[in-house]
Amino acid sequence: MTSTPAIEADNLVKHFDDKVAVDGVSFSVPQGSVLGLLGPNGAGKTTTVRMMTTLSRPTSGTARVAGHDVVQDPRAVRRSMGLTGQAATVDELLTGRENIRLIGGLYGLTPGYIKRAGDELLERFSLTEAGDRIVKTYSGGMRRRLDLAVSLVAIPPVLFLDEPTTGLDPRSRVELWDVLRGLVRDGTTLLLTTQYLEEADQLADHIVVIDRGKVIEQGTAFELKNRSGQSAVVVTVSDAADLTRAEALLREVVDEVHLDEGARQLTAPADGLRAMTRIAGIFDDSDIELDDLGLKRPSLDDVFLRLTGHRAEEPTHETEEVAP
């Protein structure tokens, strides 16, 4: 079966007055996969999502969701997708259940279905007990989960999430990731924007990096890290006394060695596994005891830094803590 991509953007451009917010963004998301739209604040992520979800009209270019053109047939697009905006856009004065009923009612779903869906979704997002409480009393994580539950009431095949975990504490973030993985397992196509490299790494099958309105790189997290070139071999010797000898050995095969005495580590740029095997052989032939020998690939952070010349975003403390 040839399947049309669930989401397609073709040379999307958006101008605000004389400012170019999105400048020719193209990508394609196969059904049932996850695209991570990665970029710093102001890169054009939200504007891109607003165009894809019919909220904002592209200055030029086209976009399709579930095969429907966002400009030609916005209604069909709205029928096929759910949107979870940047701020949790649930109604604070309504209960969780009433929020679901409101959106379900606007979709024209039957009351019987809405009731069943409400129960199922609240259960699924661990909100059953809170379902009849006013949203004002919810924590940030609960609001996000409710927001997602509300977006799912009509079971859209495509879901857009604009920075779904911004402002969440680490635990809620990991919980939300689990929920999203569940959705994908069940066949939903996701497009999520994030400033967190780690989030893209965790969730996305395919990553599109945008900066200043342009796509500057795309691929899987693995490809991105690989393409960013320099992997390094990290050698950890057992005895600090061997460091100098180990360094000398390494220098026979590589030009540049970085020495970290405290960690008893030597780092040498190496392009891939072959270099690493060679280095392993050298140490095998010597009498130097190693604690560890490993290949370190660049993190997405390194990738981003290389691509844009600036950090993705000040990582918040939360992000740092979440990092394994």
Binding site: S3, L109, T110, Y113, E120, A154, L159, L183, T189
Partner: peptide, 15 residues
Amino acid sequence: GSTTGRQPGLERPEI
């Protein structure tokens, strides 16, 4: 064809 994604025990409702 173009529709995927389900919820627990729910079938995609008619909009």
